[in-house]
């Protein structure tokens, strides 16, 4: 069944969109990530412009993060105080990111900008994750527990705050900066940034793993909501019909994924996720380097 998307201005098969939503929902259910880093490239691949893909991807992430965070609230694994600090940083970052995105759109470099951001961040995080999880797996085989690392300099900064749920007494500056960085990414890549924030919270802030996912989801809701609003208000690139179809597909997929996820070992999951991230990164990098079949493209008309 073809459906016409009012903002993207093209007609796409509704079941294809539901399927994409379900597929990514399933992966996010298995791995506990939002899947935005897969959503945006796939939407671009089926012919949706980068601007609409990024903005609508952020909109879809709100829904999946809300349903995720509610489950964490019930288990009391959300550090609200930390989440608020991260969100404040996220708000600043998201505003910066949308401005940057607009600038790149005016310069006609959105595609390159989005693609390069993907290659850098997915490549970096995927690589680290693979290295770390393979290491952890090997250590687990040898029977030694993986140590929790702390960075001393983080604890020397001012504006110290007590984060009870995280059992931390640290400066508010590092979480604010991490939140800001993730906010920028959300705006330019259409991702929630969980894949970046979760490792940052564990390794940079030293938060306990139990509260990390819930807290990051809590922050992602705020950042993606703000990003969606800013993209809609400034660029008019949020497609409500597209978002709704992806949300419905995603909800169904996430349920299936969550059931598969519990059957796989945590270390194996991390390795699989790392490989997935690296595959997406590799594909985007390849497209940048390989000679394209079509050198020309028609840009969007100038702003009216």
């Amino acid at each position: 069944m073809q459906i016409y998307l009012p903002i993207a201005e093209l007609s796409v098969n509704a079941f294809l969109l539901l399927g994409i939503g379900a597929g990514i929902g399933m992966l996010s259910g298995i791995f506990g990530v939002g899947g935005g880093f897969l959503m945006t490239p796939i939407l671009m691949f089926i012919g949706i412009s980068p601007s609409v893909a990024v903005a609508t991807g952020a909109n879809q992430l709100i829904a999946s993060s809300v349903s995720g965070v509610l489950a964490h609230f019930r288990r009391r694994t959300v550090d609200i105080r930390m989440g608020v600090v991260l969100s404040l940083g996220g708000a600043v970052g998201s505003g910066l990111g949308v401005e940057l995105f607009q600038l790149m759109r005016a310069l006609g470099q959105v595609e390159l900008f989005v693609a390069l951001s993907y290659v850098i961040f997915l490549g970096g995080v995927g690589g680290l994750m693979l290295k770390e999880s393979v290491g952890a797996l090997l250590k687990a085989r040898r029977g030694a527990p993986a140590p929790r690392r702390h960075h001393g300099w983080v604890h020397g900064l001012p504006f110290k705050m007590r984060f009870r749920q995280s059992k931390l007494y640290i400066s508010a500056i590092p979480p604010f900066i991490i939140g800001m960085g993730v906010g920028v990414l959300a705006a330019i890549m259409g991702v929630g940034g969980g894949f970046l924030m979760v490792p940052a919270m564990i390794y940079l802030l030293g938060m306990p793993t139990a509260v990390v996912v819930g807290t990051s989801l809590f922050q992602i809701i705020f950042v993606t909501a703000l990003t969606t609003y800013l993209h809609a208000a400034q660029n008019q690139t949020v497609d409500a019909v597209l978002a709704l179809l992806l949300i419905v597909g995603g909800v169904i997929g996430a349920q299936i994924g969550a059931r598969i996820g519990v059957r796989i070992r945590a270390e194996s999951l991390r390795i699989l996720l790392a490989l997935l991230v690296l595959t997406v990164c590799g594909k985007i990098a390849l497209d940048l380097v390989v000679t394209p079949t079509e050198l020309y493209s028609i840009g969007a008309g100038p702003a009216k």
């Binding site: 709100i62 809300v66 409500a240 709704l244 419905v248």
Partner: peptide
């Protein structure tokens, strides 16, 4: 858009 996504979630 944000409200609809929140409710959907």
């Amino acid at each position: 858009s944000v409200v609809i996504a929140l409710i959907a979630g």
